[in-house]
Design a protein around this nucleic acid. Structure first.
Lengths: 140, 140
DNA sequence: TATTAAATGCAAGTCTATTGCATTTAGAAT
DNA sequence: ATTCTAAATGCAATAGACTTGCATTTAATA
């Protein structure tokens, strides 16, 4: 079954029509390793010889986020980034020198969340945790 | 020694002139429990019968951040918030219902940072970790 | 193929943040 | 106290991120 077909199914399940713009953005989110901002989406779409209005891109990314196809994340900057939501829960290592983003999969803070509930009575629904520093190459 | 005097000293140490706007903002950061955004700073200043240009507020907050008087933080939204930097390292519990922000002081993720260096070779300089959920009162 | 709710394009507008430049001011030097 | 000057501010213009209303187009169903 083709990737394209999978995407169509996924959109259908989310009650979203399979429009060219949505398929393209889904494909981008699928193929990229670094969470993308709207600017990156725009230039990707332009490269593929199609033109989609920025407002539409925002609307698509919002609907993806709402329907669980994408996750909206903030890497300590004044704009949102997006990544596919079909990846396992993870966090990011953001290199302050080259901007590269790696994922870390092993999240050990669930114990911490239980602890917070016990000590503070605060019920954690979700968390954000990002690490900023230098990747291996940029340390030299 | 008055708080005002302390603030003047601190500004002096940071090679920043003790202007009315700076003293006011420093006082606000000192007195508030929740990290403030620029809007909150503006309305605070207006309440105190003075008027400072938004551009100046941005410049002040940026200089405070650069000189270590304030910390810039992002609570998963498209704008910066600021808090005094003389508090101990801590993280936040943000209630998704009432918006209240609590601090958690015991940060147990330094071990995790060492682990990241060992496993990934990524040298962590700083991190962000925020928890979103429901505070005690909003759970009922 | 026709129908229609959903999606898009366009334009206008909001909010956050930045920058250049003329004017003002804090703080030091006199 | 007064003068001086670099630093700070106000103002206006601008950029970038994001939203919204409305007319038009289109995907998916009958």
């Amino acid at each position: 079954m083709s990737v394209n077909h999978d995407c169509r199914n996924e959109l259908k399940e989310a009650s979203l029509k399979a429009t060219p713009a949505r398929l393209a953005i889904l494909k981008l989110l699928e193929s990229t390793e670094k969470p993308v901002d709207v600017k990156a989406v725009r230039s990707f779409i332009r490269k593929n010889n199609s033109k989609t209005d920025p407002a539409t891109i925002f609307r698509i990314l919002n609907s993806f986020t709402k329907r669980g196809l994408a996750r909206q994340i903030y890497l300590n900057e004044s704009k949102a980034r997006y990544e596919r939501a079909n990846k396992i829960e993870h966090h990011h290592l953001i290199c302050q020198s080259c901007g590269q983003v790696q994922d870390i999969l092993d999240c050990t803070i669930f114990d911490l969340e239980k602890d917070i509930l016990k000590k503070k009575g605060f019920l954690v629904k979700t968390h954000s945790m990002e690490f900023f520093g230098l990747c291996l190459r940029c340390q030299h």
